[in-house]
Design a binder for these strands. Structure first.
Length: 496
RNA sequence: GGUCACGUGGCCGAGUGGCUAGGCUGGGCUCUGCAAAAGCUCCUACAGCGGUUCGAAUCCGCUCGUGACCUCCA
């Protein structure tokens, strides 16, 4: 059994034992969205992955401060240093105040995450709320010599930084190669080198988002806000920094440069990067027009969707792969996930209703006990092994078999003994609900009504009124409920 | 072009130097008024070609294929 949590550190490419800088406290920062449009399913995958990381750290007893930002200024449309601000552009387009855009899509973001049962972070700071701190950081970088001012804009001097430190330490890039590729500097460009990036940008007269600074009116550069807010709330050095793979370069590389350039210390102990959600093998992205909004998924309203899928089905689907692998979206896979999810939740319903009953005439079945204890250990091991939710779910399904056997009395709780049974129940419930964050999607119908129907069903069966029996069975099936006739009684389950 | 991943059974997806997850689908059995559910069970794979090894799908090399990043992107 793997007793310690190990996570893959993108910085080293190795699985490392997780040792917080100051246990039991853990600081975790995850790059949040730029709120200029609706979040799509690919975005959700990242936040879902870190939701499980957060949940598991809590499960292990750590005191976690989880910071996830909202980027509401500074993120430009085209490249890091030119073009319009995404928020400002959208504001003009929709004829709204920039902050209305921010509020609208922040609300939408929160609604979506709540639907997927993603726990809100401890702190959700926004870039516009930290302009003062960002100006301070720009000044620090100027003071340290790693930044220079040109015409009211300030740029980070990557080559200068690279003489003292290692730019590219996270993404494996070499500064010379970066210089050779990509677009060339044009005549208007104020930068010394094309790989330099803006940390403060002068606002043109038409620019609607602007703040006063020692360098004139302007706005902060994209990468700056994450450095500032992570430092402010988690300190100059903290445990985990996460985000999607596509942020590794340049965003996270720049964050490291800004931190090291200002404090001299590497900011993050463990970098974690989640992989992309793909559609037909291609990354889901807005520009490729292959992205789904969560709402389209729930309603089944999209050309690529054959039917609707519930939030928990999608959550389960995503957890069935490892966060570091690409996950390909398809109707077949979602349909399979839907059935699997219901199987797991049916197991959850059953085990919650089970209680221990001793029986002095029944001997403990050591083979069963060993099997169950092993499966429980496996669940812990799987999560400890780099948050392997897919493997964890596999083990949970093996436990579902045991739970179903108990319900049909093919296996009795007395055989397991009290300790094993209680361990089974608590492990199963806490892994499904607390760690994986899967919950029962309750029926609209009241369970009381259901049990009344089941009683009628039972009477009809007793009276061998099979016409009525079939009628009740058919009516419930139409509602997605199937009846389980067992020797030991009647129960219902979600149709898989 | 540069950098880095990946290629697993009908489908989706873990994993690992020997003990061959799991889900979905399909077949069989038990149970049942008929079913369903459940349990048991069968079909058993690691792109191709070499190499290392007692032993590789797992390590190394080459080939082919796919993708990501190098511009904004979770």
């Amino acid at each position: 059994m793997i007793k310690e949590l190990r996570i893959t550190n993108s910085l080293t490419g190795q699985k490392e034992t997780f040792e917080p800088l100051a246990p039991p406290f853990v600081g975790m920062y995850v790059c949040g969205p730029t709120v200029y449009s609706d979040v799509h399913l690919g975005n959700v995958r990242t936040f879902l992955s870190f939701d499980v990381v957060y949940r598991y750290l809590l499960f292990l007893g750590y005191k976690v401060r989880y910071v996830r930002n909202i980027t509401d200024v500074g993120h430009l449309v085209n490249d890091a240093d030119e073009g319009e601000d995404k928020i400002a552009k959208k504001a003009k387009l929709d004829n709204l105040e920039p902050m209305e855009v921010v509020q609208k899509y922040s609300n939408g973001f929160h609604d979506v995450l709540r639907t997927f049962n993603i726990i809100p972070p401890s702190i959700e700071p926004s870039a516009t709320g930290h302009i003062v701190e960002q100006i301070d950081l720009v000044q620090k970088l100027l003071d340290s010599g790693y930044a220079y001012e040109v015409n009211g804009s300030v740029y980070f001097d990557v080559s200068k930084y690279n003489t003292d430190h290692d730019y590219g330490i996270l993404s494996g890039r070499k500064i010379e190669e970066l210089m050779d590729s990509g677009r060339d500097l044009d005549a208007q460009d104020e930068k010394k080198n094309k790989i330099d990036f803006a940390i403060w940008k002068k606002a043109l007269p038409t620019h609607i988002m602007r703040w006063k600074s020692p360098w004139g009116e302007g706005f902060p550069g994209w990468h700056l806000e994450c450095t500032v807010m992570s430092t402010k709330y988690l300190g100059e050095q903290f445990d985990i920094h996460g985000g999607g793979m596509d942020l590794k370069f340049p965003h996270h590389e720049c964050e490291i440069a800004q931190s090291v350039g200002s404090t001299g210390k590497p900011p993050v102990k463990y970098w974690m990067h989640t992989n992309m959600l793909t559609v037909n093998g291609q990354k889901m992205s807005k520009s490729l027009d292959n992205s789904f909004l969560p709402q389209e998924l729930f309603e089944g309203k999209h050309d690529l969707l054959e039917r609707a899928y519930s939030p928990m089905t999608v959550r389960f689907f995503m957890l069935q792969s490892h966060y570091s692998s690409t996950l390909d979206f398809s109707n077949d896979a979602l349909t399979a996930a839907s059935k699997g999810y219901k199987k797991l939740i049916n197991g959850l319903r059953i085990v919650k209703n089970l209680s221990y009953e001793g029986n002095s005439e029944v001997e403990e079945n050591s083979k069963q006990i060993d099997q169950i204890n092993k499966l429980i250990d496996n669940c812990h091991s799987a999560m400890n092994d780099d948050i392997n939710t897919a493997l964890t779910i596999g083990h949970l399904f093996n436990l579902v078999k045991k739970i179903n056997s108990i319900q049909t009395k093919q296996l009795s709780v007395a055989e397991l003994g009290e300790a094993c049974f209680k361990n089974l129940k608590s492990t199963f419930v806490s892994f499904v609900e607390d760690v994986l964050g899967l919950q029962e999607e309750k029926l609209e119908e009241q369970e009381g009504l259901l049990s009344a129907l089941i009683e009628l069903y039972q009477d009809a069966k007793f009276n061998k009124d099979y016409e009525k029996v079939d009628k009740i069975r058919g009516a419930l099936k139409a509602q997605g409920i199937i009846l389980k006739d067992m020797k030991t009684g009647i129960d219902w389950a979600y149709e898989e």
